[in-house]
Structures are given as structure tokens and as C-alpha cells.
């Protein structure tokens, strides 16, 4: 099973998903992120999904859950670089990614977190 690396930049965790997401990859990512958040006390999580072309309802829900988990560690989650097609799919599925913020690209996502801090 492929693992998504988690990078720590300052007080932010940066996750760039470069592979097609499978259900177990996302579950693993959620576990890893929880461990990392608790270990580092990071205040923000940026998840870059520029390379992700396909999402389903499960992955959409998992992204929401990652947001809720981060909040428990007092960290804000920003999903960045969503493709238009992915956004359309998610709205058609009726998912609005509650508990997660979104930004157009990684730069804006980081700005959003820093503006908060």
C-alpha cells in the first residue's frame, strides 16, 4: 500500500497527494496525520490535491473527517488545489466538506493559515 508523506514546515503539516487515492491510502493518511498532529503540536494542515482527478463520496467524507480530527488538536485544515471537475463531483454528491477550509493553491492556503496564526 502506498503512503502519502507528511512534511512539517514550521507549525504547519504539508501533505501533497501525488497518487490516485485508494480508500485504504486515505484511512492510513488519516491515522498518520493524527499521530503527527499529536506529536508535533502543529497548528495547521495543508492538503494539496492538485494531482487528484477522481474523488468519491468516501474520500470526500474522509477529507471532512481529517478536518474534524485536526480541530480536536486545535489545528485548521485547508484543502488546496482542487480541480474544477473534482469540485463539481463533490457538489453533485452533496458534499460540502464541512470542517475544512479550501484555497485555490498551496500559496493561498499557507497564507490563510498564517493570517489566522
Amino acid at each position: 500500500m502506498e503512503r502519502v508523506p507528511i512534511l512539517k514546515i514550521g507549525r504547519t503539516l504539508f501533505v501533497s497527494i501525488q497518487i490516485e487515492l485508494q480508500d485504504d491510502t486515505v484511512v492510513r493518511l488519516q491515522e498518520d496525520l493524527a499521530d503527527e498532529l499529536s506529536a508535533t503540536g502543529a497548528r495547521g494542515v495543508v492538503i494539496d490535491i492538485t494531482a487528484v482527478e477522481i474523488v468519491d463520496s468516501f474520500i470526500g467524507r474522509m477529507l471532512s473527517m481529517i478536518g474534524s480530527i485536526s480541530r480536536l488538536f486545535d489545528a485548521e485544515t485547508v484543502i488546496v488545489g482542487m480541480r474544477p471537475a473534482v469540485a463539481i463531483t463533490l457538489t453533485e454528491l452533496g458534499l460540502s466538506l464541512n470542517g475544512v477550509r479550501t484555497a485555490l493553491n498551496a500559496e493561498k492556503g499557507l497564507e490563510l493559515l498564517n493570517g489566522k496564526a
Binding site: V80, M82, L90, T91, E92, T102, A103, L104, G109
Partner: peptide, 12 residues
């Protein structure tokens, strides 16, 4: 509403 929701998902 759908369009607005999709725009928000992109972070705008």
C-alpha cells in the same frame, strides 16, 4: 447554489 458550493470548494 451548486455553482456557489463548487466555487467555495475551490477556495474562492
Amino acid at each position: 447554489l451548486k455553482t456557489a458550493a463548487a466555487v467555495r470548494l475551490l477556495g474562492a
